[in-house]
Design a protein around this nucleic acid. Structure first.
Lengths: 204, 204
DNA sequence: GTCTATAAGAAGATAGAC
DNA sequence: GTCTATCTTCTTATAGAC
């Protein structure tokens, strides 16, 4: 009983720290955010952050792992061309999840530096995300919705789609008035049309 | 004579500081870079940086203004569809200018935060770049190479193109093996084809 | 598990010698 | 114009009370 109560408080604290840290890292970047300022926003002592996570580096990685899971869970449970079409909804959904986009774009760009604490994690994540898209393209190819099965062509198609998505999100971070879904959807239609059999009419 | 000599030394110092600072800000971000470390790399005392530029904030802005000019000068002196086609060469050229791309992508993403010292500058820059593309699209429209003249449609087209460019550059920062030009060129062809009269054959 | 207090170092910026 | 030395503040991380 008392053990469970204490444990639950610790978990609850941990969860609140992770949320506050994610927002701080997203807004100010890893170097720009400080443990004291995160602790102040969350409402705990700064010592507690180190107590829970060991170091600032480890806190960042814990934050990335948690939010990465959240985003992965929000992916549509679809496959092949249905999954790819679902990306339109996904990007529209991103407009309601600014802190997530802020975190992953900010950290992804700064983690290009090999000495960044999240460098390895972010590189692996980029590969994982791209391979998921390639995998769905292959499913779509096997059902005839995508014409080519050439590995390199599919990888380039995935890179192009993800580049557009991230580039648009960059513009939207700088100016929240940008219509994320309104620009992405027509591109997505065109992208699917180009990959698919010509008989498929492009959605308006 | 002696006046000119002293002045030239000052300018030379200033120039070397700007180069070192640009690389540091690009690699480690604004908060991650330190005046001491920049000074050490350039080979001057850290006091000299403040002497020249007044503050770290001002140093960043001086760096952005200088490199922005360099990039603007490297734009093709072409207009309309010729300018737009020239963007393929421009992006291929970016592969040889990693520090420039590193600087502007890193700072652009962190400057989404309104409290970032380069927030206003980066927002204005993004608008300026986009408006240049829209202007060339209008020229292309007036010569019949682009079908629509609708302001909003052209702005969306420009946003899409720039998003893809920046998103690809992001991937390339994380993995320099990415073939920047090889992925951008086919997209550019498709983009021009889609905007232009259907009679125009898409370049391979 | 959370707090306060503190250690040890690094940051940006200033002052004054040369 | 450039340097060294210093001021003040803030950083991450640790230690120990409760």
């Amino acid at each position: 009983m008392s053990t469970r109560g204490r444990y639950r408080n610790g978990l609850e604290s941990r969860r609140r720290i992770l949320i506050g840290a994610a927002q701080s890292f997203g807004r100010r970047g890893f170097a720009g955010a400080t443990l004291r300022q995160i602790a102040a926003e969350v409402g705990v002592a700064h010592g507690s952050l180190v107590q829970h996570f060991g170091s600032k580096d480890e806190l960042l990685l814990a934050v990335l792992r948690l939010w990465d899971e959240d985003l992965t869970d929000s992916l549509p449970e679809l496959h092949g061309v249905a999954f790819l079409r679902g990306l339109g909804d996904l990007v529209r959904g991103h407009a309601e999840r600014r802190p997530y986009i802020e975190l992953f774009l900010t950290i992804s760009v700064e983690a290009s530096d090999p000495s960044h604490p999240a460098h390895d994690y972010i590189r692996a994540r980029a590969t994982r995300v791209r391979e998921r898209v390639v995998a769905e393209l292959k499913v779509a190819a096997s059902s005839g919705d995508v014409l080519t099965s050439d590995e390199y062509e599919l990888e380039c198609a995935a890179r192009e789609l993800l580049a557009l998505m991230n580039g648009l999100e960059m513009q939207w971070l700088l100016d929240p008035d940008v219509d994320l879904g309104g620009i992405f959807q027509p591109y997505l239609n065109q992208w699917l049309y180009r990959l698919g059999p010509m008989s498929m009419s492009p959605a308006s």
